[in-house]
């Protein structure tokens, strides 16, 4: 009698233990990030972060836990975005007092196919530490303007790059300034700001390796990537 009661109890404990621990499995090779819309494939990132005791003394940091693998919950916060919408097709007015155009949300460009080859000839080059699109370079953008006007559902990614002279984070901002001034040129030519996305790689993606003026001149550039809808 006592024995069977004990057995029942043991089975119940075992079942509940399985139920609790079994449900907490995290899928392997997936790195969900708070705030992201979708889970992102990691490359075998650790999935079970350990929780060492917290140290209150900042001078003796505790054991370092591995990089984030937690369930995604909330979507990207679009909060402060007012993408310019009802602008006339050719004459755009800046959306902030400094004469810049607000960026469109990243979601507007999600899932589009990238074509790096189509506008290879439109790569714009810059002077050292400058973000001004030179008159000789402006003509290179005509092809991009043509492609965007002929295909109203196409969009464009403008990448900014720098040579290695300049500190890394200064260059990242400089690359963005280059991409933004190419974007401003395209807007001037009548392309809606909402169709243009900018991104800076700083000095992280040189077109040519080498430490000569010739290589640097090739690396100070803005590449145009055509974005096409999937269907």
């Amino acid at each position: 009698m006592n024995r069977s009661l004990f057995l029942k109890f043991a089975v119940l404990t075992l079942l509940s233990a399985v139920a609790i621990t079994g449900c907490k499995k995290t899928p392997k090779n997936v790195t969900p990030i708070y705030g992201a819309k979708t889970n992102v494939d990691g490359r075998g990132g650790p999935t079970d972060p350990t929780f060492p005791q917290t140290s209150t003394n900042p001078r003796t940091p505790p054991t370092i836990g591995p990089g984030g693998d937690l369930p995604s919950t909330t979507p990207i916060r679009p909060e402060t975005f007012n993408p310019p919408t009802s602008n006339p097709p050719t004459n755009f007015t800046p959306t902030n007092p400094e004469g810049g155009f607000r960026s469109a949300e990243l979601g507007e460009f999600e899932g589009m196919l990238t074509d790096r080859e189509a506008l290879r000839g439109s790569t714009v080059h810059f002077d050292y530490d400058k973000s001004v699109v030179k008159a000789t370079e402006v003509v290179k953008l005509q092809e991009a303007v043509k492609a965007l006007k002929a295909n109203p559902n196409f969009k464009l990614l403008v990448e900014g790059h720098c040579d290695e002279r300049g500190t890394e984070e200064y260059n990242r901002a400089l690359g963005e300034r280059r991409a933004l001034s190419v974007r401003a040129q395209l807007i001037k030519s009548g392309i809606a700001p909402t169709r243009l996305r900018t991104l800076s790689y700083g000095e992280d993606k040189p077109a040519e390796l080498g430490h000569t003026e010739a290589a640097w001149a090739k690396n100070r550039r803005s590449e145009l990537v055509l974005l096409k809808p999937k269907n």
């Binding site: 708070y34 705030g35 972060p49 984030g68 937690l70 933004l180 996305r197 900018t198 991104l199």
Partner: peptide, 12 residues
């Protein structure tokens, strides 16, 4: 090991 997105706005 938890991570959060601090900024993922259009642009850089």
């Amino acid at each position: 090991g938890e991570r959060h997105i601090v900024a993922r706005y259009g642009g850089s």
